[in-house]
Simulated scan of single mutants.
Amino acid sequence: MEIKEMEALLFCVYCKEEVDHSITYVNDKLKNVECLECQHKMEINLNVNREFYKEIYKRISSKPERMTKEYREDLSHFLYSLPVRVVSKPYRILKDINQSRKIIRGFKKES
């Protein structure tokens, strides 16, 4: 799960002019938009737990297809890198889970 923040020049209905806004996305879904001039914030109800589960499901269900594509493209590289990937996978999963838990905790504190 990842959070992306960006700035954009948008029309603010409170300021009545185009000003910079901060836009926050969670997994490419809009979470909030905040005017940087008047600090008016528009929140979008987003079920972060559901987004997390959808991401996990997508990653697990697409793994066989991704591995098949990878070994068809370059079998020698696939076989060479497989032992390292098998050993490092638990650490990579743990890193992803910890990052997602921090994001979920952050959104629970906001609510």
Rank of each mutant, 00 (worst) to 15 (best):
residue 6 M to I: 03
residue 6 M to Y: 01
residue 6 M to S: 09
residue 7 E to M: 03
residue 9 L to W: 00
residue 10 L to T: 02
residue 11 F to C: 02
residue 11 F to A: 08
residue 12 C to Q: 04
residue 12 C to S: 11
residue 13 V to T: 11
residue 13 V to E: 14
residue 14 Y to I: 11
residue 16 K to E: 15
residue 16 K to I: 04
residue 16 K to G: 01
residue 17 E to I: 03
residue 17 E to L: 00
residue 17 E to H: 04
residue 18 E to F: 05
residue 19 V to Q: 03
residue 19 V to K: 09
residue 20 D to Y: 00
residue 21 H to V: 04
residue 22 S to H: 02
residue 23 I to C: 01
residue 23 I to P: 12
residue 24 T to E: 12
residue 24 T to D: 03
residue 25 Y to R: 03
residue 27 N to A: 02
residue 29 K to G: 04
residue 30 L to T: 03
residue 31 K to M: 08
residue 31 K to P: 06
residue 31 K to H: 09
residue 31 K to A: 09
residue 32 N to Y: 10
residue 32 N to G: 02
residue 33 V to N: 09
residue 35 C to N: 07
residue 37 E to A: 00
residue 37 E to I: 02
residue 38 C to M: 08
residue 38 C to H: 03
residue 40 H to I: 10
residue 40 H to F: 07
residue 42 M to S: 10
residue 43 E to A: 07
residue 46 L to Y: 08
residue 47 N to D: 14
residue 48 V to F: 00
residue 48 V to Y: 02
residue 50 R to Q: 15
residue 50 R to E: 15
residue 50 R to G: 06
residue 51 E to A: 07
residue 53 Y to E: 14
residue 53 Y to S: 14
residue 54 K to T: 13
residue 55 E to Y: 11
residue 56 I to L: 15
residue 57 Y to R: 12
residue 58 K to N: 12
residue 59 R to P: 02
residue 60 I to C: 13
residue 61 S to L: 09
residue 61 S to N: 15
residue 61 S to H: 08
residue 61 S to M: 10
residue 63 K to A: 15
residue 64 P to L: 03
residue 67 M to D: 15
residue 67 M to V: 01
residue 67 M to N: 12
residue 69 K to W: 01
residue 70 E to S: 13
residue 70 E to P: 00
residue 70 E to D: 13
residue 72 R to M: 14
residue 73 E to N: 12
residue 74 D to S: 04
residue 76 S to L: 08
residue 76 S to G: 01
residue 77 H to S: 15
residue 77 H to C: 06
residue 78 F to C: 06
residue 79 L to S: 07
residue 79 L to I: 07
residue 79 L to F: 01
residue 81 S to D: 15
residue 83 P to A: 07
residue 84 V to G: 12
residue 85 R to C: 06
residue 87 V to M: 01
residue 89 K to H: 05
residue 90 P to E: 02
residue 90 P to G: 00
residue 90 P to T: 00
residue 95 K to D: 15
residue 95 K to L: 01
residue 96 D to I: 01
residue 97 I to S: 05
residue 98 N to W: 05
residue 102 K to N: 07
residue 104 I to D: 06
residue 106 G to Y: 04
residue 108 K to E: 15
residue 108 K to Q: 12
residue 109 K to F: 06
